[in-house]
Nucleic acid binder design. Structure first.
Length: 489
RNA sequence: GCCCUCAUCGUCUAGGGGUCUAGGACACCAGGUUUUCAUCCUGGCGGCAGGGGUUCGAAUCCCCUUGAGGGUGCCA
C-alpha cells in the first residue's frame, strides 16, 4: 500500500458530458498527475431511468480526446473495482445492513405521494421541507403491516442525536458549518434497490481509498450528509474541495440537458483542438497570476494548485475560447491541421476522398493560407472554397464594369506576361512581379490589385494576392484574367 | 421560505492594509503592417455592488444591506 494520493472523477452517464463536468475531470486530473497520484474513473449509474451506456461511452471518448487519462476505473480496471455503481450493489447492501444493525438507519414505508404532501405542507407554512420521521420508530408489527399492504420500503439514514454541527473543511473555501437541524433523515437506499448518490459516493470513495474529493460547488450541501455517513461507518474522511461552477450566459449553472452546445463532442466536431479546450478550461476558475494565458499542458500541470482556485462562478465565454483556439490552430504543425481539416473539406464537397492523396500538397498550401482566418476548423471550407471551386461573382455586373475600367487591360496583359516569365511562382516571386508592375506601369495601386483580385477570385477581399496567384498558378490565373476581360466587352 | 456559498472592467482574472490615479487577457474602438479581409503590432475605452465600522491608511480586515448562484429529490 503506497501513500499516493488518489482522486476520482465520477460522472453519471445521464447526458452528454459538457465543459462543466469536464472541467471537474480536468482539475482532478491535474492534481492527481502533478503529485504522481492516481485518478479513478467511476461511473455513477444508479439513476436507472436516465443512465445509458451511450453517455458512458461519450464520457470515456471525450476524456480520451482531451488527454485526461484515468489510471483506474471503467474501461481500465484496477484493484478496487468494479467501477460502475450498478455492479457494486452487494457492497452497498452490506454497508446498509451494517447501518441498520447499528441503529443508524431505518426502513421507511412512506409513499412518494405522502412525501410530496409533507413537502407541500411544509412549504405552505414557510418551513423547510424535512422528512418528519414518521417511520423512525415503527414496531415490527407495523412494518409487517405496511409490507402486507404491498409497500416496498426505502432506507433512511437516522440523524444521530449527538451530532449538532457538521463542519466541512474545504481546501478552497475553508470551513463551512452546517447545523444538523437543517438536515433530515435522508434516503440512502431507494425502493428500486439502488443506493442513493449520497450513500454510494461515501462507500465508494472510502473503499476506493480516495484521498481528495474535488467536485462542483453544487455538492456542498451534500457534504455534511456524507460526512455523517463516513462517521457512522467509521471511515476516514477524505479532503474536500468544491469548485466554483461554470455558468452559462445567464449566469446559471450549465445544464446537462440544456440547449446551449457546450458538450465536449461538439467542440471536437467543430474542429476545436483538445489542447486549446484544455488550456481554456483550466483558466475557468484558476489562473497563473501572470500575463501569459496560452499555456501548455505541462506548464498548467506544473503551476496548478487547488488552493489557488477561485470561489466565484465563471461564465463560459465562447469568444475567448475561439480566440484561443485560433491561436492554437495557427501555431500547430501544418500537417496536423491539414489532416484535421480534410474531413471538413470532404464534407463540404470541395474535394473528394480520391483526391486527398494526389492533392495533398496543394491542399496543405491552401489550408496554411486560410488558417489565419479561422477560429475553428469547421470554418476552413468557407475560407478555402475560392481555391477549390470555379470562380463565381457576388455581383457579375459590377465586376464587369470594374474590368472595363481604364488601364485594366494593360495591367492584366502585363501581369500575365510576367507570370510566364518566371520559372516559379512563389509568394516572393509574385511579390516581385507586383513591384515591377507598379514601377513600370503608370497606374495607381488600386487599379492593379482590385481588378486583379476580382478577376481571379470573384471576390472583393480575401487572402493576399501573392498567395492567391502562387496557389492558382500561371495558367489558371491567365485563364481567369482573360475571361474577365471578355466580360468587360 | 430555509440552509450554504459567492461578489474587482461586458466576460475571464491579478490583487491578500500603503508600491492601486487597480494590472493582464477576450470582446469592442482607433492607428500601424498587409494598397483588400484575416493574422500580427501599438494605443484607447472600461471595474473595486452600497452603507457602516477597524486603521494614520482599505479593493484588501469586520458587520449590515443588496445582488447573484447552489441546495432544499426514492437526480447525480
Amino acid at each position: 500500500m503506497s501513500n499516493k494520493i488518489r482522486l476520482r472523477f465520477p460522472p453519471s452517464p445521464t447526458g452528454k458530458i459538457h465543459v462543466g463536468n469536464m472541467r471537474t475531470a480536468l482539475f482532478n486530473w491535474l492534481v492527481a498527475k502533478k503529485k504522481g497520484g492516481e485518478l479513478v474513473l467511476r461511473i455513477e449509474d444508479t439513476d436507472q431511468a436516465r443512465s445509458t451506456k451511450e453517455f458512458e461511452d461519450i464520457i470515456i471518448r471525450e476524456m480520451d480526446w482531451l488527454g485526461l487519462d484515468a489510471d483506474e476505473g471503467v474501461g481500465i480496471g484496477g484493484e478496487y473495482g468494479p467501477y460502475r455503481q450498478t455492479e457494486r450493489l452487494d457492497i452497498y447492501q452490506k454497508y446498509a445492513e451494517q447501518l441498520l444493525e447499528s441503529g443508524y438507519a431505518y426502513k421507511c414505508y412512506c409513499t412518494q405521494a405522502e412525501l410530496e404532501d409533507m413537502r407541500a405542507k411544509a412549504k405552505a407554512n414557510d418551513k423547510m421541507p424535512r422528512y418528519d420521521g414518521s417511520c423512525r420508530n415503527l414496531t415490527e408489527a407495523e412494518q409487517k403491516e405496511f409490507e402486507a399492504a404491498g409497500r416496498t420500503p426505502v432506507l433512511r439514514f437516522k440523524l444521530p442525536a449527538e451530532e449538532k454541527d457538521v463542519v466541512v473543511e474545504d481546501m478552497i473555501r475553508g470551513n463551512m458549518t452546517f447545523s444538523t437541524s437543517v438536515l433530515d433523515d435522508f434516503i440512502i437506499f431507494k425502493s428500486d434497490g439502488m443506493p442513493t448518490y449520497n450513500f454510494a459516493v461515501v462507500i465508494d470513495d472510502a473503499l476506493m481509498k480516495i484521498t481528495h474529493v474535488i467536485r462542483g460547488e453544487d455538492h456542498i450541501s451534500n457534504t455534511p450528509k456524507q460526512i455523517l455517513i463516513y462517521k457512522a461507518l467509521g471511515f476516514e474522511l477524505p479532503k474536500f474541495a468544491h469548485l466554483p461552477l461554470i455558468l452559462d450566459e445567464n449566469k446559471a449553472k450549465l445544464k446537462k440537458r440544456g440547449k446551449d452546445s457546450v458538450y465536449i463532442g461538439e467542440f471536437r466536431e467543430q474542429g476545436y483542438l483538445p489542447e486549446a479546450l484544455f488550456n481554456f478550461m483550466a483558466l475557468l476558475g484558476w489562473s497563473t497570476g501572470d500575463e501569459e494565458e496560452i499555456l501548455s499542458k505541462d506548464e498548467i500541470m506544473a503551476r496548478f494548485e487547488i488552493a489557488d482556485v477561485n470561489k466565484s462562478g465563471a461564465v463560459f465565454d465562447r469568444e475567448k475560447l475561439n480566440w484561443m483556439n485560433g491561436k492554437y490552430i495557427r501555431a500547430a504543425e501544418l500537417d496536423r491541421i491539414v489532416e484535421l481539416s480534410i474531413p471538413f473539406l470532404i464534407e463540404a464537397n470541395l474535394v473528394s476522398e480520391a483526391e486527398i492523396t494526389s492533392q495533398h500538397d496543394h491542399l496543405a498550401r491552401i489550408i496554411d493560407e486560410v488558417r489565419t482566418n479561422v477560429d475553428y476548423l469547421a470554418q476552413i471550407p468557407a475560407e478555402a472554397e475560392l481555391f477549390l471551386t470555379e470562380r463565381s461573382f457576388d455581383n457579375p455586373a459590377e465586376a464587369a464594369a470594374e474590368f472595363a475600367g481604364e488601364d485594366v487591360k494593360l495591367v492584366f496583359s502585363t501581369l500575365k506576361q510576367k507570370l510566364y516569365a518566371k520559372d516559379q511562382l512563389t509568394n516572393e516571386t509574385v511579390g516581385e512581379i507586383f513591384k515591377e508592375l507598379k514601377k513600370e506601369l503608370d497606374v495607381g495601386g488600386r487599379t492593379i490589385y482590385h481588378p486583379t483580385r476580382l478577376a481571379i477570385t470573384g471576390k472583393g477581399s480575401g487572402p493576399e494576392m501573392t498567395s492567391v496567384i502562387s496557389i492558382f498558378g500561371a495558367d489558371e490565373v491567365a485563364k481567369r484574367l482573360d475571361s474577365a476581360l471578355e466580360m468587360a466587352k
